[in-house]
Amino acid sequence: MVFSFLRRFARNRAALVGLLLILIVIAAAIAAPFLFPRNPLRIVGRPEIWPFLTWRHPLGTDSLGRDIAAIIAHGARTTFMIGLLASLTATLIGVTVGALAAYVGGWVDEVLMRIAELFQTIPNIIFILTIVSILGQTILNITIAVGIVTWTPIARLTRAEFLSLREREFVQACRAIGTTDLKIIVREILPNALPPVVILSSLVVASAILFESAVSFLGLGDPNVASWGGLIGDGRTLIRTSWYICAVPGVAIMLTVLALNLVGDGLNDALNPRLKT
């Protein structure tokens, strides 16, 4: 089954391109400390050197004379770490809430879904900015804040999956032999509900990356960490002379998000071959 899944995925050319792009970004993130061992936020040369002019700074330097290539490579680490951890946070909250709502039902379901609706109503970036400004501008707080605003779709999907699985025969059989509720949820229903949820989580990584870059762009990111959004924010004042400072990190964000979306779509199509149009 896993094998045929992989084969269906591999037949999707766009998804393979996406996968390749993601691997390149991951490779850049892993290689960053070896390629650029010094602090990427350190000043290395003349400010505003255009890309592709010197070998020393292949992507040029920014308004302060920092190496853009180094910031991009180290920024890939930040981006991926926040994206993955925020998605993990969102998945943990979402799966817990969705599973409880569907399995327990009744007023618990009602209350939990109201709470989900509440989180969907508060404009997400405004909420993230509030959390970050109150708790402080650190990577951890940004990660938590992004996780807190992105869990609702995961909760809804988990709930829907659990509702359709809850009354199946194998669950009833477990009940009949006296399996505890916790065991039924964790060991019986969850593994069956998980594949679509995991795919949604991979799409949440993409939106988490977009949120993180927006927060850094607005100047509320962690000031001690190289970040793609932060570089765009720094370069904004120079768009008349050196617009490449904004363009380069933006392309990096766009390609990463695009790749994640393509892979997510590919996984989705491979999982539900009938739904493909």
Partner: peptide, 16 residues
């Protein structure tokens, strides 16, 4: 393309 481009970056590029 437009689904992946951050809005603020698209805004800056359009301004440029």
């Amino acid at each position: 393309f437009f689904f992946a481009a951050p809005t603020f970056w698209l805004g800056i590029m359009l301004t440029i």
